[in-house]
């Protein structure tokens, strides 16, 4: 029995972005950042904090990954300076 080769067969998924395809296609409204209102100085990063999908960058000027942004509008709603608007 000692020389019997035991091989465990497992289905293992590997991590990759875009598991559900380009989820940006789900979007009906696109968030647009007004960089004059959000300058980066003393910025709160609430949009980054509250984005469920984590598609907003942490570095200034802030950028939204529109390929995967699902367009939920949480960032526009939570921005205290109203620097993000949802455009159709």
């Amino acid at each position: 029995m000692a020389d019997k080769i035991r091989e465990t067969v497992m289905a293992i998924s590997r991590p990759a972005p875009g598991e559900a395809g380009r989820t940006g296609d789900w979007r009906s409204y696109t968030p647009v950042i007004d960089h004059e209102k959000c300058t980066g100085k003393d910025s709160c990063l609430y949009c980054w904090l509250y984005c469920p999908d984590g598609v907003i960058s942490r570095e200034f000027p802030l950028e939204i990954d529109l390929e995967y942004c699902k367009g939920c509008g949480v960032c526009a709603e939570e921005c205290p300076r109203k620097a993000i608007t949802m455009v159709e």
Partner: peptide, 18 residues
């Protein structure tokens, strides 16, 4: 969590998990 997951838009679970 890499972008482009299958969760709904504005998922409370997704934000929790993140």
């Amino acid at each position: 969590i890499l972008p482009g997951s299958r969760s709904c838009a504005a998922c409370g679970l997704m934000l929790t998990y993140r």
